[in-house]
Amino acid sequence: MADEEKLPPGWEKRMSRSSGRVYYFNHITNASQWERPSGN
C-alpha cells in the first residue's frame, strides 16, 4: 500500500479492534499512537 511505504522504518498502520479507529504501531520500539508518524 502506498500509504505504508511513506511511514518511517518500523511503523505500520493497524486498526483498533475496540474502537475501529486506525492507529500506528512501531514493531521496533513497541510504541503505538493515533497520529501518523512523520517520515522526516
Rank of each mutant, 00 (worst) to 15 (best):
T29I: 04
M15N: 08
G10A: 06
V22A: 15
M15D: 07
K13L: 09
R17H: 15
K6L: 09
K13C: 06
P9R: 06
G39D: 12
G20V: 01
L7A: 03
R21K: 10
E4R: 10
Y24L: 00
M1L: 07
S32K: 12
P9T: 10
M15E: 14
S16G: 05
N40A: 15
M15S: 06
N30E: 15
S38K: 11
P37Q: 00
V22P: 09
N26A: 00
G39S: 12
K6P: 08
P9N: 07
K6A: 14
N30Q: 15
D3F: 14
W34S: 12
G10W: 06
R17W: 05
A2P: 04
R17P: 15
E5N: 07
W11K: 01
K13P: 05
I28C: 11
K13G: 03
W34F: 13
S38T: 15
R36L: 11
S18E: 14
R14Q: 03
W11M: 00
K13R: 11
R14T: 04
R36N: 04
R17A: 12
P37I: 00
E4K: 14
Q33D: 02
E4Q: 12
E4T: 09
R21D: 09
G10Y: 05
P8W: 01
M15V: 09
E5Y: 11
H27I: 11
L7P: 01
R17S: 14
T29V: 04
I28R: 13
Y23F: 15
W34D: 14
T29M: 03
E35Y: 05
R36T: 11
N26S: 06
R17M: 07
W11Q: 01
S19I: 10
D3H: 11
S19M: 09
A2K: 12
P37M: 00
R21E: 07
D3R: 10
S18K: 03
N30R: 11
F25A: 05
T29D: 07
P8L: 02
S16Q: 13
I28M: 14
G39K: 05
S18I: 01
T29A: 05
W34L: 11
K13W: 04
N30P: 01
S19V: 09
Y24Q: 02
S18T: 13
S19C: 08
F25C: 04
D3Q: 11
S18L: 08
S19Q: 13
N40I: 11
W34A: 15
Y23Q: 04
R14E: 02
W11V: 02
P8G: 05
A2D: 07
K6G: 09
R14Y: 04
P9Q: 09
P9V: 05
I28E: 14
R14H: 00
H27P: 14
R36E: 10
R21F: 04
T29W: 03
Y23L: 03
E5G: 09
S16L: 07
A2N: 14
G20M: 03
G10C: 05
N30D: 05
M1K: 13
G20S: 03
Q33Y: 08
S38E: 13
M1H: 06
E12V: 07
T29E: 05
K13H: 08
R14P: 00
R36C: 14
S38M: 13
M1I: 12
G10T: 02
Y23E: 10
E35V: 08
N30H: 14
N26K: 01
S38P: 03
H27G: 10
N26H: 05
T29K: 07
S32W: 14
E12Q: 09
A31L: 14
Y23D: 05
D3T: 15
M1Q: 15
D3L: 13
Y23W: 06
N40R: 08
S16W: 05
K6S: 10
Y24V: 00
R14G: 01
V22W: 11
E12P: 00
N30C: 06
E4A: 06
K13M: 10
R36K: 14
I28D: 09
G10V: 02
Y24D: 15
A31T: 15
S32A: 12
N30F: 02
E4M: 10
M15I: 14
A2L: 10
Y24W: 07
P37C: 00
E12R: 03
R36W: 05
V22E: 14
M15P: 02
Y24M: 00
S19F: 05
P9G: 08
V22R: 04
Q33H: 04
N40E: 15
R17G: 09
K13V: 11
E35L: 08
L7Y: 01
S19W: 05
F25G: 02
E35R: 05
E5P: 10
S16V: 10
A2T: 14
V22S: 07
V22H: 07
G10E: 06
S38D: 04
A2C: 11
N40G: 11
F25Q: 06
Y23M: 08
F25R: 06
G20C: 05
E35F: 03
S32C: 14
R21Q: 13
T29G: 02
N40T: 14
P8R: 01
I28Q: 15
W34R: 11
S19D: 08
Y23H: 02
A31E: 15
W11F: 03
E5M: 09
V22G: 07
A2R: 10
N26D: 04
Y24S: 02
R36F: 10
